[in-house]
Write a protein that binds this DNA or RNA. Structure first.
Length: 467
RNA sequence: GGUCCCAUCGUCUAGCGGUCAGGACGCUGGCCUCUCACGCCGGAAACCCGGGUUCGAUUCCCGGUGGGAUCACCA
C-alpha cells in the first residue's frame, strides 16, 4: 500500500480563509491518520494578486491552527521551468499544439458559437495547422471530441462529463507561463500527490486535469470534492457574513482546537459525537463520512464548542492563550500561580478568551471602580456593617482557607439573621465592582487575604464618603 | 442560459427499505444556587414536491422545484 500524499495549495492573495482552513484540515487529517505526507504549496503564479504578506499570514494561521506540513512550502512560481518542460513533452507527443489565434479571434469564435445556440468555445482552428512556437502562440491541449470523462469522486460518486463540452483549453500563455490546470497537474504529479481533497468549486475543472494526466500517461490521483461553506444566507461566504479569516477567530478569543473541531464537524461526522480533541480527529477522521451538501457557518455553535474546549483544558494550557488577550486590555499578567487560579474560576463561565480576559479584569486592577447600579443597591449604609464585620473577621484569620472564610460568613449570618446572598452580594460588589463574578469563596481565595481585606475596606470608605 | 453538484428540525448533522426519525447549537419550561455561568431533567421544532420500484419508502429510480458551483491567455 502506497503512503497517502495530500496537499494544500493556497493562493496568497489574502489571509487564510476559514473555508480554506477546512480543506487544509481535511488533507492534513487524512495524511496524519494514514501516516502519510502532507505538502504545502503556495500557488503564487498570479503575480498581480500574490503578496509575501499574504504568504506569511497564511503560514501564521496554519501554525496557529496547529497544521504542520511534511514538505514545503513550495512556490509554484519557482517551478515554471518544470511546467515548461512538461508542456514541451505534451506538444512533442502530439497531445497539445501551438495556436496563433488572438484573444479577439477567440472571442469572435465564442460569439459565433453562442449565436448558433452552442456553448462558447474555441473552435480548434489551429489544431491541425502544425504551427511552430511563435512570439504570440499559446499551447492548447487536444481534447477528445467524443466520449466521456468520468471523475470517480470519493464524496460525490462518479461524475460524468461529456468531452464534447470541453474545448481545447490553454496550457501555456503566449508569455510562456503555465495556466492553472497545467501547473497543478504537473506539480501534483511531480510531488507524488495521490489524494486530492478540495472544494467542490473545483469539480468542474477536474475532467480537464484528468485529460492532462492521461495525455501525460500518468495515474490520476484520488479526488474528493467537499461542499463549500456558505454564509448565513446560503451565499458564498463573504465579509458581510462576519469574520472570514482564521486570524480574526484568533483575535475573537477562540481556541485553535475549537476552531478545528468546529470546522471538521462542518461537513464530516462521526455518529453523534460533537466534541473532538485533536487526537480524536486524527484517529477517527475518514473520507467515508464526508457530507455531500453545503453547510452554513454558525457562530453560536462555534462559541458553544469553544466553551467546552476552554473547560477541558488545564489552567496552565489556557494561560498561554489568555495572556495576549489580557495584554490587549492593558492588564499585566504573568503565567504564574495567580493567573492559573484566575483562569480556574473563569473557565467554566467563559465562551471565549476575550470574555475571559474581560471577566478577569478585576483580579488585576489595584482600585476597583464600582458599577453605578451595583453600588447603589449593595454598597449602602445598610450593608456597611456586613462589610466591616467581614473585613475584621478576615483580617484576623491565621489560616486563609475556604473553611475559615465560611466560618466568618456563617457567624455574620447568625448575628445579622441574614441569608447568605444578602452577605455575598455586597462583598462581591466590593471585590469586583459588579454583581457578576465567580463564586465568592473561590474568588477570595485566588485574590488572597491582603487584597480581599483591602478592597472591602475601600468599599466601606466609599460608602462613608457617599454619606 | 449551458454544464455540474446538492436537498432530514431555524442551523450542523445521524440514518445506509420496516426507527416513537437520534444527537448538537439556538429557543424554551424546571431543578441546582451566594450573582453569573456550569451542570442536570423536560418541551417545541425536520425527512422540498410529484411520480414510480417494493408487502413497505426519509432511504432506491425518474421528473419538478429550490439552492449552490462553474463557464478566462485568474487560481
Amino acid at each position: 500500500m502506497e503512503p497517502i500524499i495530500t496537499r494544500f495549495p493556497p493562493s496568497p492573495s489574502g489571509y487564510l480563509h476559514i473555508g480554506g482552513a477546512r480543506t487544509a484540515l481535511f488533507n492534513w487529517l487524512y495524511a496524519k491518520k494514514t501516516k502519510g505526507k502532507f505538502i504545502l504549496r503556495i500557488e503564487d503564479t498570479d503575480a498581480a494578486r500574490s503578496t509575501t504578506e499574504s504568504v506569511q499570514a497564511i503560514l501564521d494561521s496554519l501554525e496557529w491552527l496547529g497544521i504542520d506540513w511534511d514538505e514545503g512550502p513550495y512556490f509554484q512560481s519557482q517551478r515554471a521551468p518544470i511546467h515548461a518542460e512538461y508542456i514541451e513533452k505534451l506538444v512533442a507527443c502530439g497531445a497539445a499544439y501551438y495556436c496563433s489565434c488572438t484573444p479577439d479571434e477567440v472571442d469572435a469564435m465564442r460569439e459565433a458559437a453562442k449565436a448558433c445556440g452552442k456553448k462558447p468555445m474555441y473552435n480548434g482552428k489551429c489544431r491541425d495547422r502544425h504551427l511552430e512556437k511563435g512570439p504570440d502562440t499559446v499551447v492548447r491541449l487536444r481534447t477528445p471530441d467524443t466520449g466521456v470523462t468520468v471523475v470517480e469522486d470519493i464524496v460525490k460518486g462518479n461524475v460524468a462529463f461529456q468531452n464534447a463540452e470541453m474545448d481545447d483549453f490553454i496550457l501555456q500563455r503566449s508569455d510562456g507561463s503555465a495556466m492553472y490546470n497545467l501547473a497543478v497537474v504537473v506539480d501534483d504529479l511531480t510531488m507524488g500527490i495521490n489524494t486530492i481533497i478540495r472544494g467542490d468549486d473545483h469539480l468542474i475543472n477536474t475532467p480537464k486535469q484528468m485529460l492532462i494526466y492521461q495525455a501525460l500517461n500518468a495515474a490520476v490521483p484520488v479526488f474528493g470534492h467537499v461542499p463549500m461553506v456558505l454564509g448565513s444566507d446560503k451565499s458564498r461566504l463573504s465579509k458581510r457574513h462576519g469574520a472570514m479569516s482564521v486570524g480574526e477567530y484568533q483575535k475573537m478569543g477562540f481556541l485553535p482546537d475549537a476552531v478545528i473541531n468546529y470546522l471538521v464537524r462542518l461537513g464530516w461526522s462521526h455518529g453523534d459525537q460533537e466534541f473532538f480533541t485533536r487526537q480524536d480527529l486524527i484517529e477517527k477522521f475518514d473520507l467515508e463520512h464526508l457530507g455531500r451538501s453545503a453547510s452554513m457557518f454558525d457562530m453560536d455553535k462555534l462559541m458553544a464548542l469553544n466553551a467546552r474546549h476552554i473547560q477541558s483544558k488545564s489552567p496552565e494550557d489556557l494561560a498561554a492563550f489568555l495572556l495576549p488577550h489580557l495584554q490587549d486590555l492593558q492588564l499585566t499578567a504573568e503565567d504564574n500561580v495567580f493567573t492559573h487560579g484566575v483562569i480556574q474560576t473563569l473557565a467554566p463561565r467563559s465562551k471565549t478568551l476575550v470574555e475571559m480576559a474581560q471577566a478577569a479584569r478585576f483580579y488585576y486592577q489595584d482600585t476597583i471602580e464600582f458599577d453605578e447600579k451595583a453600588a447603589a443597591k449593595f454598597l449602602t449604609p445598610d450593608t456597611m456593617g456586613i462589610l466591616q464585620h467581614s473585613a475584621k473577621g478576615i483580617r484576623a484569620l491565621d489560616t486563609y482557607t475556604e473553611a475559615s472564610l465560611e466560618d466568618i460568613f456563617k457567624k455574620i449570618m447568625d448575628d445579622s439573621k441574614l441569608g447568605f446572598g444578602k452577605i455575598a452580594q455586597p462583598i462581591r460588589v466590593a471585590i469586583t465592582g459588579t454583581t457578576v463574578s465567580p463564586g465568592i469563596f473561590e474568588m477570595l481565595l485566588v485574590l488572597g487575604k491582603e487584597k480581599t481585606v483591602c478592597r472591602i475596606d475601600a468599599a466601606v470608605k466609599w460608602i462613608q464618603e457617599q454619606a
